[in-house]
Design a protein around this nucleic acid. Sequence first.
DNA 1: GCGACAG
DNA 2: ATCTTGTCGC
Length: 220
Amino acid sequence: MELHRRHDWDLTPAEAVALQRRLAAEVVADRPLDLAGVRLVAGVDVSVKDGRSRAAVVVATFPDFRVVETVTAIRPTPFPYVPGLLSFREGPVLEEAFGRLAASPDVFLFDGMGTAHPRRIGIASHMGLWLERPTVGVGKTRLCGRHGPLPEEKGAHVPLVDRGETIGAVVRTRTGKNPLFISPGHLADIPGAVALVLACAPKYRLPEPIRLAHKAAGDF
DNA sequence: GCGACAG
DNA sequence: ATCTTGTCGC
């Protein structure tokens, strides 16, 4: 039942889409994510420079964000950026980084979508299947879906809907600033993902773990 | 056919 | 994502 989980990353766009359609059926996006049980949170990010992708995974304590582990990996960037296929560009280098992780984070925060994706399998969901751990997608801009008016106040959030299905939420982490597009990756749910992100962003627009990973990955 | 389009 | 200095505002 998990035979095709460890798949090849070297696929054509058409093959990648076909694979996403198969894997999407295994994504669990309705499992309650209880913040009371969260002790360690990981932030994941990838930066691209001169044809090389650098991945960083930073594990921090929750809710005070003290760094307990940082792992990185560098590889040639294997795939062009294609909306909807980000996993195939950042997946390989992330797998390498995850393989070096010693800690066991209770949840991983990704720079990108979870189920808020055309086929409901953004990078947070895809890597979640590999990690077999709760994951949450944190997008800075919208990939798909629509939403109603969002209050300007920090903490405000409204449903993100696509083709009649609620796929995530648009969340304001900072009053007056652009919102974040939150969605469960795998083994999490929308309410839990929103609560976790808000708890991880007490001072800045982006969740603290993601900011830490940004730094470790080399982008400033 | 015409837009939209994570990082 | 990345290319890039100074600058407006709290």
